[in-house]
Design a binder for these strands. Sequence first.
DNA 1: TGGGAGTGCTTTTTT
DNA 2: AGCACTCCCA
Length: 711
Amino acid sequence: MSDLLARLNPPQLQAVTLPPVHALILAGAGSGKTRVLTTRIAWLVSTGQVSPHGLLAVTFTNKAAKEMTARIAALVPINPRGLWIGTFHGLCNRLLRAHHRDAGLPQTFQILDSADQLAAVKRLLKNLGVDDEKYPPREICHFINGHKEQGIRAAQAEAYDAWTRRRVELYAEYEAQCNREGVVDFAELLLRCYELLSRNEPLRRHYQERFRYILVDEFQDTNRLQYAWLKLLAAGGASLFAVGDDDQSIYAFRGAEVGNMREFERDYARSNVIRLEQNYRSHGNILAAANAIIKNNRERLGKNLWTDAGAGEPIRAFEAWSDLDEARFVIDEIRELIREGTGAGQVAVLYRSNAQSRVLEHELFSRGVPYRVYGGLRFFERQEVKHALAYLRLIANPDDDTAFLRVVNFPTRGIGARTLENLQAAAHQTRSSLYNAAASLSGKAGQAVGAFVALIEILRRETESLPLPEVVEHVIEKSGLAQHYRTEKEGQERLENLDELINAAASFVDDEGAVGEGGALVSFLTHASLEAGEHQAGEGQEAVQLMSVHAAKGLEFDVVFITGLEQGLFPHENAVAEGRDGLEEERRLMYVAVTRARQRLYLSCAQTRMLHGQTRYCVPSGFLEEIPAELLLKLNRAPATAMAPTAPAYGASVPAIAGGLRIGQTVEHSKFGLGVIVASEGRGADARVQVNFGGAGMKWLALEYAKLTAV
DNA sequence: TGGGAGTGCTTTTTT
DNA sequence: AGCACTCCCA
């Protein structure tokens, strides 16, 4: 036990050994956040203050949940299976499966991922004959999810204009459709679980009394509903222990509310706020740069990282002529580093947007440096995998219309759009699922659909008593999917992925062992929806790691390159156009990027860059100027100095348009608000500029008439 | 039914 | 530029 606490610093020790109170742990980057969480759990259990049964630990990603479980298991001899450690969605799913009747759900309810949800909304709009120009499916999804995340049902949604009234109606129709089909989207998992607990007093009391200690990781990423869910569970006197870093809040765009931290501090943890400010990751110069950047943000709880590791190397800054030149520089440096003995896996190249990876990949590939890119399509999102899962979903729940439509004619069975329209009309009339309505269809088309339904029935019967991996294999084969891909010329890789799906089922059975409510198949389908596959980088891969800054959160590398540090790109122009909050989120993103580096940090920008098929002239990011010059080592290559002997200031080569404006400049317009100049044509009085106003869109404006003020 | 041409969009992303 | 999506024709 003393071992457990031996290597903690004073604030860490204080946090770990807090009595059962509410507490907010402000954990800076690299300050041992996970360590504090896991050690606290281990300490609580090993000192007998709580049984593992009485703990609830919540994370955002499956990876974090797994890591936490593994680390706790290494600290105390308990069976990690008995611990309630998981993601918000995973835990809500668990509660809803256990109490599906009280929650008004079929035991085998299926989970829609974002793509499934979009498909479901598209289908709904089509069935209702809604104009999808005026009501774009994506926007409707966003509207629905936004309301659910605020805890608002269609019946309570406010609407002050016709457009929104219609959207609320569509939200209500969507709710009805999901209920009819027995499916639940991601936001619904949380909202349904919240409602279950708040309406069902005995159940709520049961869980409130059971969970004495509730611990939350990455608290800055919680949305309103998640926070409400936590408060509800903790309302019976449990201790709520929230760990987070407001400076690393980079997910406001998808509903995270940093304000939850301030609110939590005010309402719960006023006297128990602990700051973890000692950083064990980065050298001093890197931290100094990070601190200098983040201190420009106004909305902060306040925190200053320090280290006793020494200043380390200066931060290397490079201004390239073009994106290609930048890529060459990065790869030259990487080759040199590898030659000197740095492992390729210890080098990360970060960028603001995934499109930037292309040039870098090309250069890495042509110079034979091993690399791995994160951020592509994930395993369970591949079309062939989704098709196979759709067959499995129909076996588990025939009312799942999304799954039905996905594979009713794949592989092709001569069931055309016309037939499906008739089928949907029939289903709509009888308010039943497509599967049930299939019997009512007559004629040749009816036969084809009938054959499909018969196929599903046969598959269900044949797989009834098979172990899960064999179920998957059988379905892939007998559905015709395997045959279809065998004849397709690009099908080899898809076949391999289908084999991989069988393997995934096998290892799922091995890992999970215990079969949840509703049987192995339902558990596996849930797993597939909730855990779309490896997206974040793993340890120990001997390849240079390429990823967006967002994807790098939580990771660390010896050497980090932050590329594309240009106005309009990083900070991104859309964010800048949103105003101060947008810019502050970009700055937090920059802070996250910088704090990924242990020993060496490179910052680079390019003067020209291909973007959307056009060459753009770029101004270096304002974030570069926020770093004290004495921390920087400017690496300009020979041609640069030769052509500009007086050491050019950043951005000197970007042509000025007129009136001190240049591309990348943030401007304000009386009607459109804030925007960023992205292109120009003409000179002097004739000059026109293209400005991205974010929400107000992209506009061409004549400088002579438009009143633009440089900001 | 499937492919080819035309159109429009394009930040970040977990569950 | 590159990709996803739609539409139309053979």
